[in-house]
Simulated scan of single mutants.
Amino acid sequence: MALNADQKNQMASGKGFIAALDQSGGSTPKALSLYGVEPGDYSGDAEMFKAVHDMRARIILADDFTSEKVIGAILFERTMDDEINGKPVAQLLWEDRGVVPFLKIDKGLEDTANGVQTMKPMPELDALLARAVKAGIFGTKERSVIHEANETGIAAVVAQQFEIAKIVCGAGLVPIIEPEVNIHSDTKAEAEEMVRDALVRHLNTLPEGEMVILKLTIPEVPGTYDVIADHANVLRVVALSGGYSTEEACTRLAQNSKMIASFSRALTEGLNVKMTDAEFNTALGANIDKIYRASVA
C-alpha cells in the first residue's frame, strides 16, 4: 500500500513538530492531574477517558494547533476510535488541521531486565494496524525504555523495536521507533552511544524505500544522532521531552539541528481545565511556539 504522498512529504521536510497526545491507561491519571482534573472528579475508566478526550479535543481545536507549527500528532487507540465535533479524530486532524495522524500501538512495558524495559506482547497487532489504516492513520509509535548502558539490554530493545517496525511497514504504515533513554540514568551518554550504534546496524538491514521515524531522548552530547537523521531509511528523527520542563527540553533540542520535537508533558505544561478558552489558547500557543522555535532552530 502506497503512503499518502502529501503526508510523507510533510513528515520528511515540514517545519514544526509532532504533538504526543497518546497518554494511555497508566499515565492518564497523572496527565489529568497536571491539567487540574483530580481522581475525585471522575468515577471509573469511562469517565476518566472522557475527561482526557475532552482535554485532547480542546488542544486539537485550539487556534495554534495547525500544520503551521504542528506537523503530526500521536493518538491513543481510544482517541483514534472517537470523534471530535462528530468527525473521526484522525480525519479531523488531517482534513481540518493539516496535521498527520499517528497511533500509539504498544501495550506498555515489561519489568526491568538487563537495565531496560522491552515492550509487552501485542497479540492483536495485525487487527489494530488494519483498523488504523481504515481510520486514515499514517504511522504508529511504539515505546521501550532504557535505564542504563547495558549492551545486552539495549540490543534486545532495538531488535524488538525493528521486529515490530517491519510488521508496521508491511501494513503500509510508517513506524515511529522509540527506545527512550531515561533522562535520570547515571550512564545516559554511554547508553545513547550504544543506542545509536544498534539503530544504525538495524537500519542498514532495511530494504530500500522502507521508511521509519526515530523518536529518541534528547542526547547529552549534541549531534549524537545526526548519522541516523542522514540515513536513507529514516524519514525524520524526533525528540521526546522525557520529563524535562518545556524550557529545558527546548533548550536541549535547539542544540540538535537534525531533530524536531515530539513532546507530551512539555506541550501541555501549565494548561488547566478551569482556564477560559482565551487563557487556554494563549498558554497552549506559547508552548507550541517555544517547541516550534526549538524544532526549527
Rank of each mutant, 00 (worst) to 15 (best):
D289V: 04
E269S: 11
E77F: 07
L129K: 10
T140V: 06
G209W: 02
R265A: 11
M55R: 14
L271N: 08
Q23L: 11
A189K: 13
G98T: 13
D54R: 10
V195H: 03
G115L: 03
R56T: 08
K8Y: 14
A189V: 08
S27H: 08
H53D: 12
F17V: 09
S257M: 08
E210R: 09
G242Q: 02
S144K: 04
E110G: 03
I177H: 04
P207S: 12
G108Y: 10
A297C: 13
R201N: 13
V37T: 11
C250D: 01
S27I: 09
N182E: 14
I60Y: 00
V37P: 00
C169D: 09
S144G: 07
M194A: 11
P219Y: 02
G98F: 07
S241E: 09
I146C: 08
V200L: 15
L92Y: 15
K104V: 03
K188N: 05
A5H: 04
A20P: 01
E47Q: 15
M119R: 03
A12G: 11
K107H: 13
N272E: 06
S295P: 11
Y42G: 02
Q161N: 15
K15G: 05
L21V: 02
P101S: 11
N272Y: 02
G270R: 09
A135P: 08
T118C: 15
V89T: 13
E247M: 08
Q91Y: 11
I288H: 00
P175V: 09
L216T: 05
H147W: 09
R293A: 14
K30Q: 12
L235V: 12
L253W: 07
A90Q: 04
N281D: 15
Y42K: 10
M55C: 12
A165C: 06
M275I: 00
T224V: 10
E163W: 06
V212K: 03
A19C: 10
R58T: 06
H184C: 06
D6I: 07
L235G: 01
S185I: 07
N272F: 01
G285H: 02
I291V: 09
I71V: 12
E279H: 00
T224F: 12
I146D: 05
I213K: 05
Y225C: 06
A57W: 11
T205S: 08
I105F: 13
M259K: 03
A113N: 14
D277F: 00
N233Y: 12
D6S: 14
V227E: 06
V116E: 13
K104R: 10
D81P: 02
I177V: 14
A57C: 13
E178R: 05
H231V: 05
E148T: 14
